[in-house]
Amino acid sequence: MAEDIKVIVFKLGTEEYGIEVDKVQTIERLMPITRVPKTYAFIKGVINLRGVVIPVIDLRGRFGLEEAEHTDQTRVIIVVVNEMEVGFIVDSANDVIDLNRESIDTPPEVVGGIKAKYLDGVAKIGEDRLLIMLNLSEVLNKNEIVQLESLEG
């Protein structure tokens, strides 16, 4: 019997994604972002979160999806991974659910245009909802950014 975990659910387009709640520091409404020049396009800049400067990345951009206009629903999820604080811009975030670890399956090669290595797995909730669990340390892997850079360059 595997344990239950709490998961924050957010949306990019129509897909639903999940991040374990203990990796999430806070969820904020979109706030003014200061652009940081000479860096990757998906790094939107830095924000002031109660006195701490935190870089913000557009998760759509990070996964190579088309970037969307920000709306009222747009949220910034601040996550802490490997002592790095980073904000993710997502289309919306409005749910916390309990999930049994056993219900998470190994992901197929590509889900919703996102490569499998960014994913921990896919969980089926209820009858027709699929939740894509993110592998945060891979999403924030700096070495890979360098590779991306060299490909683009």
Binding site: T34, V36, P37, K38, T39, I43, V46, V52, V53, I54, P55, I57, E83, M84, E85, V86, L140, K142, I145
Partner: peptide
Amino acid sequence: KNLGKYLPEIQGISGG
């Protein structure tokens, strides 16, 4: 303030 560990070194910017 430093800009956080995630950002790489940016030439010409020393912090925020």
